[in-house]
Design a protein around this nucleic acid. Structure first.
Length: 630
RNA sequence: GCCCGCUUGGUGGAAUGGUAGACACAACAGACUUAAAAUCUGUCGAUCGAAAGGUCGUGCCAGUUCGAGUCUGGCAGCGGGCACCA
């Protein structure tokens, strides 16, 4: 996505000399190869050259005013007509002594990209094509594409009608054209970026003050270094619209650092993106006297994993990268990129509701009755809109404080983790929160119900022998631990929660009947409490205490899955005939092919499908699948 | 127009190329209860069948493979971002 925002493009700067006088117009193009197809010059109405020219041409002033009046909404831009003003001036073609090109002021040429001037090549650019049709300018094809390609043809091809470029391919022609420009001293290769300006000031209180003082005598004066940082005043009032800093006399009025006469502070503050563009460096050295400690920052940086919403994926990430590179260029550190990995998390969404008058309703003002939604206050029907990003303006928000109060923070946390993978949008529902609430209660009952027996068991002392059921529970514990650890490390939080549920469901069904089985259950429950703690920190601590331990779970090491308990003795093998599932068969996962083949071919359902036909191939993947190919 | 992301049951979503639908939500049926809540049990892709079982099924069309939700090529739809960027 950043490619789009940074918008690097390689091309050339070319000088076009005016026919009269000494001046030249400089243009930027990514298609210097199409130079011989040029039929006009387009200048932005905002270009200084045009402003100058307009002083003596009233009609041009009118045209510029029209262009500026044009709307900037998407619809208006989409439908805007190409318009030009013929200046009656000409430039000479850089390579062709006797070719002159008319100069138009054109409404579609942007001042803030390139040089604000373009050469128009109607045969190979849609905008120039439309423009040329309107003002009957020549349309000379100079790139031969596929024969069926209509004009304007914007793709690559072989150059024609182009003198020394004839016969070259687009890429090669670009290079050769630039070589000629350089040789003639009328141009050069150039790289431009369309990264938009970042207006870093905001007319609001919440932000870092901009350390500038405006003095009526000395102009704009920076706050001297020994007076930094400028700190926001605490005694501000928000009872009036606008920026409270503007209305704060004692903070705003200061003496000018230069002439010491009364002056005013800058009351705009920095965009919060300014601080978030380098805070990670400060985090590495919170006690440093300077903004950050180079050595410590270089030790800890870059950030291993950055998590943010979609707006962070473009703006914040872009700015952070800029700051990081700028700090490097200024010698503050040797780092060129701030983050190793980015996880772009989804947004929290909720259904939207409207009453019969079309007004938005909060979720708590609405109730589902017999499959239909009605307004609680008067039982009138409610229109349910699609689920959208939670937004104050659409009322589809759920106050976090209320959820925490009713269900506890762990319930909310569990729901958010379990419902969908973090990178996708998340649908907030009452049913979902209820489901998480039920699970927490279930977990609690599971541990509490076994508490009396379990408290008599010593952890770690593995009894011998273990019953088959004890072995089964022990293996399940380690298998769960293994997968849960992996899921968390890979950000598969919804699967992590699913594993927890599978595990606790199995433990619920398990009724120990032997000391070794109680031992296994005790191990399992301890493990369960440890591994729920990232998702359910409060519940985990409470259960940890109930199990008779001192605080805190969070200080316990993460348990380790032992490889020896991950080995399965028996596994259900999927059996296919001609690639189609025909059944399953339980066997050791370590059985060799020859033995397995004999077993499988003897199975009744396999025989039924084979019916004595010749077996062309027998595929056997240990512990996974067998496929009999006829 | 360009750039991202997405497309699997009624819903959210699982599935290192190897039994599609794990785990949930909703729904339905049942147990417990005077009743309700809570809890527990069962059913839950479509279709044919009394059953056993069969056939189809991961947006669409091809391809690779013993085997494709997963890989390759092409297409469509939905959502988001940017947009006259020369």
């Amino acid at each position: 996505m950043q490619v789009n925002w940074i918008g690097r493009s390689e091309g050339a700067l070319i000088q076009f000399p005016l026919l009269e006088g000494e001046d030249t117009l400089e243009i930027f193009t990514t298609r210097p190869d199409t130079i011989f197809g040029a039929s006009f010059i387009g200048i932005s109405p905002d270009h200084p050259f045009v402003e100058n020219l307009a002083k003596t041409i009233p009609a041009l002033q009118t045209f510029i005013a029209e262009c500026r009046a044009m709307g900037t909404s998407q619809k208006e831009l989409d439908t805007a007509e190409k318009k030009g003003f013929n200046t009656s001036l000409f430039v000479r073609h850089p390579f062709l002594e006797d070719v002159k090109l008319p100069i138009y002021v054109a409404n579609f040429v942007l001042m803030d990209y390139g040089t604000g001037i373009v050469f128009g090549c109607p045969a190979h650019d849609l905008r120039d094509y439309e423009f040329a049709l309107k003002y009957t300018l020549p349309i000379l094809p100079v790139v031969k594409g596929p024969s069926e390609a209509p004009l304007p043809y914007e793709g690559e091809g072989i150059l024609i009608n182009s003198h020394f470029l004839n016969g070259l391919e687009t890429q090669e022609a670009k290079k050769v054209a630039i070589q000629h420009l350089v040789k003639e001293k009328i141009g050069a290769s150039e790289i431009t970026y369309k990264l938009r300006d970042w207006g870093v000031s905001r007319q609001r209180y919440w932000g870092c003050p901009i350390p500038i003082i405006h003095c009526s005598h000395c102009g704009i004066v920076p706050v001297p270094e020994d007076q930094l940082p400028v700190v926001l005043p605490q005694d501000v009032a928000f009872d009036q619209p606008g920026n409270p800093l503007d209305l704060h006399p004692t903070w705003k009025i200061v003496d000018c650092p230069q002439c010491h006469k009364p002056a005013e502070r800058e009351t705009d503050t920095f965009d919060t993106f300014i601080e978030s563009s380098w805070y990670f460096a400060r985090f590495c050295s919170p006690h440093a006297l300077q903004p950050f400690d180079k050595e410590k920052a270089e030790f800890w940086m870059p950030v291993d994993q950055y998590i943010g919403g979609i707006e962070h994926a473009i703006l914040h990430l872009l700015y952070s990268r800029f700051f990081t590179k700028a700090l490097k260029a200024c010698g503050y550190w040797a780092l060129s990129e701030p983050f190793k990995n980015l996880l772009t998390q989804g947004m929290v969404c909720h259904e939207t509701y409207r009453d019969q008058t079309g007004s938005w309703l909060y979720p708590h003002e609405v109730e589902k009755q017999e499959g239909r939604f009605v307004k609680l206050s008067d039982n009138t029907p409610v229109t349910v809109g699609r689920s959208e990003k939670m937004s104050k303006s659409k009322f589809n928000v759920v106050p976090a404080a209320k959820i925490v109060e009713e269900y506890g923070a762990d319930t909310a946390r569990l729901f958010m983790l379990s419902d969908s993978p973090p990178e996708r949008d998340f649908e907030w529902t009452e049913a979902g929160i209820e489901g998480s609430w039920r699970y927490i209660n279930k977990l609690w009952r599971l541990v509490m119900s076994h508490l009396p027996e379990i408290k008599t068991i010593k952890r770690g002392e593995r009894p011998s022998p273990l019953t088959p059921n004890a072995i089964r529970i022990q293996k399940l514990t380690h298998k769960t631990l293994f997968h849960v650890t992996q899921d968390i490390e890979r950000f598969h939080y919804n699967r992590y929660i699913a594993r927890l549920r599978e595990f606790s469901n199995s433990l619920e069904e398990f009724l120990p009947s032997d000391p070794s089985e109680w031992w296994a259950l005790n191990e399992a429950l301890h493990t369960l409490v440890l591994i729920i703690s990232p998702a359910l920190p409060h519940v985990a601590e409470a259960l940890w205490a109930e199990l008779g331990h001192s605080p805190f779970v969070i200080n316990q090491p993460w348990p380790k899955a032992e490889a020896e308990y991950l080995i399965e003795d028996k596994v259900t093998l999927a059996i296919q005939v001609n690639g189609k599932m025909r059944g399953a068969f339980e066997m050791s996962p370590r059985l060799e092919e020859e033995e397995a083949r004999a077993l499988i071919l003897d199975l009744p359902f396999v025989k039924a499908h084979v019916q004595g036909k010749v077996i062309k191939k027998f595929i056997y993947i240990q512990g996974k699948i067998a496929n009999v190919v006829l």
